[in-house]
Design a binder for these strands. Structure first.
Lengths: 227, 227
DNA sequence: TATGCTTCAATCCTATAGGATTTTCTCATT
DNA sequence: AATGAGAAAATCCTATAGGATTGAAGCATA
C-alpha cells in the first residue's frame, strides 16, 4: 500500500481503519508497522501514531546515489569475478524480460522497466557474494524504488497541461523509444561484462550507469524537494 | 538482553515467559521482536516462534569486514573533507574517553574499549555526512558488536585452563597494556587525519585499521565457526 | 475580538482470553 | 527393542475490550 501510494507519503496511518480494511485485528497490523518502521518506510511517534515517511529530500537523494556509486560498482566487479552458470542464467533471464518489456505500451512499459531495474540491481548485489552488501543494498533501495514509483504515479495521475514539466521530460527522455532504451543498453553493457568475467569493465559500466541515472533523475528530485 | 547474552545466540525466545519476566503484555513484546527481526538479531519462524540468531559464520564475518573496507575508509575520507568544530569536539571527546579507559583494570578496560570502538566508528560514519552510509553502517555494526561482546563474555565465563586458547591470545594481544593500545593508536591516527582535514591520510589510516582488526579477530572467528 | 480553560471525541496502547498449530510424551504393536 | 499412532501440553497467533493520552471543539472571560 505504501509502494502503490494507497498510503501517500506523509499521510497518517490509522491502525483501527487498517484493521477493518484488511479484515484482521490490530496486533498483526502493529507488527507490520513495526517492521516497516525499521525499513524507514513508516515513522512512529509514540502516543501519536504511525505515518508514512516523506519522499527523499534532495540531500537524501544525493546521499543515496553517492552511496550507490560507492558500493554498486564494487558489487558488479565482485559479481564478474565470482560469476557461475547459475548467475549467468539469472542475469540472462532478467535481460530477456527487459527486452520484452520494451514492446509494451507506455504505461505498461514504464511499470515493467521500473520493476526490471529494481530486480537487476538487486540481483547484482546478490551476485557480489557479499551478504552484508546485499542486505545494505536492499534496505536502501526500497526508498529509491518508492521515489520512482511516485514519479510514475505522477505521470498517470496528472494529465496534460497540469503535469509538471519535469515529469514529462523525464519520461520522454528516459522511457520512450528514442533514447529511452538507454538504461537497458547500459544494463546490457554491465550484463556482458559480468558474464564474460571482465571485472574491470563491469565496475566501470556500473559506475557510468549510476552517474547517468543520477543526471536523469536530479531534476525530478529537485522539483519534488521544492514541493 | 541479546547483547548481554541473557538471551544466548541460537536460543529460543518464549513470548509468554518474556512477557511475565518484564511485566508487560505480549503485544509490546511482539513489536520489539518484530523490530529485532528487521535488525537481524532475532529470527522468526512462522507458527514456531522467535529465536536469537546465531553468531556470524566465518563467511559472514569475512563479508562484513570486506564491506567495512569498502565503506569506512570512504567515510573517513568524507569526514575529513567536511569536518567542522562540532565534529572535532565530538571526536576529541571520544578519544579522551578511550585514553581514560586505558587506566581501568582488565574487565572494565575491555568493556570500555569495546564500547568506545563502537562509538568511534559510528561517529565517523555519521561525520561522513552521508545518511545512507550511516544507516547502512549502523545496521551492520550491531552484528560485529555482538560478536565482540560474545568474546568478552567468553573471557569472563570460561576461567583458567578451560578457556579456549584463541580467547586468551586475542585479549592479551589486543587489550593488554603492551601492544594492547594498538587499536587506540590507530584510532588516534584516524582522529588526527580527520581533524586536520587530511582526507587521503584519513582514508588510508582507516583502511589499515580495519585490516589490522580483521587479522586480530580472524582466529576467533574461525574458532567460533568450528564450534 | 482574542485568549485561556474545560470538555469531548479520536486514537493509541495494553491486557486478557480463546482458537490453531506444533511439539512432545505415552502407549501399543510389530 | 524399535517404530508408529494418538493424545496432551506448550506455544504461537488473533481478537476483543478497557485504560491512557493527545488534539480539537466549545464556552466563558478579559
Amino acid at each position: 500500500m505504501v509502494f502503490s501510494h494507497e498510503i501517500a507519503p506523509g499521510q497518517r496511518v490509522n491502525i483501527d481503519a487498517l484493521s477493518l480494511r484488511l479484515g484482521v485485528s490490530q496486533t498483526p497490523i502493529r507488527e507490520a508497522l513495526a517492521r516497516l518502521e525499521s525499513d524507514g518506510l513508516i515513522a512512529k511517534e509514540p502516543l501519536k501514531g504511525y505515518s508514512a515517511t516523506n519522499l527523499l529530500t534532495l540531500k537524501e537523494f544525493g546521499d543515496l546515489f553517492r552511496f550507490r556509486l560507492l558500493i554498486e560498482p564494487w558489487a558488479a566487479e565482485q559479481a564478474a569475478k565470482h560469476i557461475d552458470a547459475h548467475g549467468k542464467a539469472a542475469l540472462k533471464e532478467e535481460m530477456q524480460i527487459a527486452k520484452e518489456a520494451l514492446k509494451f505500451d507506455d504505461n505498461s512499459k514504464i511499470e515493467a522497466l521500473t520493476e526490471h531495474d529494481a530486480r537487476f540491481h538487486s540481483l547484482i548485489a546478490e551476485l557480489s557474494g557479499n551478504e552484508s552488501l546485499h542486505q545494505a543494498f536492499e534496505r536502501m533501495h526500497c526508498h529509491l524504488h518508492l521515489f520512482r514509483l511516485f514519479l510514475a504515479n505522477q505521470r498517470n495521475l496528472v494529465s496534460g497541461e497540469d503535469r509538471p514539466a519535469f515529469v514529462s521530460e523525464l519520461f520522454e527522455q528516459y522511457y520512450q523509444s528514442g533514447s529511452g532504451q538507454l538504461a537497458i543498453k547500459q544494463h546490457n553493457e554491465i550484463y556482458k561484462a559480468i558474464t564474460s568475467g571482465d571485472a574491470k569493465a563491469a565496475k566501470l559500466a556500473m559506475h557510468e550507469h549510476i552517474e547517468s541515472s543520477l543526471k536523469r533523475f536530479s531534476p525530478a528530485a529537485e522539483a519534488i524537494n521544492d514541493l
